[in-house]
Nucleic acid binder design. Structure first.
Lengths: 222, 222
DNA sequence: ATATTGTAAATTGGATCCAATATACGATAG
DNA sequence: CTATCGTATATTGGATCCAATTTACAATAT
């Protein structure tokens, strides 16, 4: 038999399509914080009934991306600066450990691919793709760690602060610094220096946290 | 007005009741790994329709406690030894950090309460309550950290390995050692020695991981 | 006997309908 | 004019119904 087989059992259900779309819209900030998610409206938008929409919303709530109140509906969850700060700490702790354990397992091919993302990131002039390339670069490196549970936890954490991350990159020297730090991390990986890669990753994340908090403070002081 | 107010908006919905019950049954091992979750059957059990059951199941899947396939239904998710090992590493990393940051914030009152759980744990003769008291003791200490996101991540991780944790406590010297280690952690907290408490917590978790893996290996070798 | 096909039962995914609750807003009393 | 109360509307939670898919199994052909 020579047929390109497609696993039909894995085709997306209505609820997962709605879930993915809402998740993307929320983490990228297309849906404003506090924006109510009307089941009926969303159902019409996707040409489906409210049932899949409700399932999607309950999953989003489980991830902390929306907040729901009984009989009142769900709204896009906000993130206080203190919560964002805590999540950056969480990421710093985890990602430093992940990359430490990933470095010894990185193949030449993987490093080439990571360098590709890194260069694409530095070359990109479109702020909308920065966030994506940033995540691709990091997860390319992290994937070598073979720690799926850790990676999932980091992914969830990233989802929660994605909006802030993008904002931070647009800040004055955000891109330039991110780029410099990415290069340094990549070089440490290429040298096989796990401790250095780990320390650099930690500083990379905590630095982003610091500049972000300063930015937010600047905003609120006005 | 002198009425004990009850926030009715927070009364549980059918779906959350089902969710809590299933979650508890799964993490405590009352539902065997691979056991299918029939929507109809569960709905009858709770005197409700399948709708809340489906919502509960989709939330459980989001947490990794069940695995679902389109049109085939959901089964209780298993955990390979390697996955369990990874989750213990995850916990060791996080909990060590959490307690390090919690120690400086622990009040006298909190330490008294933690000591209470610790003593109840050591005095308890009922293996069924060991797991609960163990979690109560640890989360009492962790709560002082004021790191809600970290705590939630640890809670989820605990849920995933809860079954193994209980099994590990029943092992030959599991209880005795856990007890000794709890006391040592508590004393480090009382002394205000954050670094020691952190190191002890880390070893406590990695030790449990080691003895659990040896146990599982022993089983599979037969 | 084994493999394949066809069919009925079981099960899930989704649509529609109804009940419970919240929200908006006008009427009324003070 | 303001505060309170009712009522109409909007919205959510849950029940019931239908369609899509899987599973079990009998019938058939090789």
């Amino acid at each position: 038999m020579k047929l390109k087989s497609v696993d039909i059992s894995k085709t997306a259900s209505a609820s997962s399509i709605v879930f993915d779309a809402l998740r993307k819209a929320i983490i990228e900030g297309d849906l404003a914080v506090g924006e109510p998610l009307r089941q009926d409206e969303i159902a019409r938008l996707f040409n489906t009934s409210r049932i899949p929409v409700r399932e999607a919303i309950s999953r989003l709530e489980e991830q902390g991306l929306v907040k729901a109140q009984r009989y009142k509906g769900a709204v896009v969850a906000g993130l206080e600066p203190e919560e964002a700060a805590e999540i950056f700490d969480f990421r710093a702790l985890l990602e430093a450990e992940i990359i430490r354990r990933a470095v010894p397992k990185m193949s030449e091919e993987l490093l080439r691919r990571a360098r590709g993302y890194c260069e694409a990131f530095s070359a990109s002039s479109d702020p909308m793709t920065w966030g994506d390339l940033n995540r691709e670069f990091h997860s390319a490196l992290y994937n070598a760690s073979d720690l799926p549970y850790h990676l999932e936890a980091v992914d969830n954490a990233m989802d929660r602060v994605d909006r802030y991350l993008r904002a931070q990159l647009v800040l004055s020297d955000g891109m330039e610094r991110a780029n410099r730090e990415h290069m340094a991390i990549l070089e440490a990986c290429e040298k096989g220096n796990a401790e250095e890669a780990s320390a650099l990753t930690r500083m990379h994340i905590l630095g982003a946290k610091k500049s972000l908090l300063e930015h937010l403070n600047g905003l609120s002081r006005r």
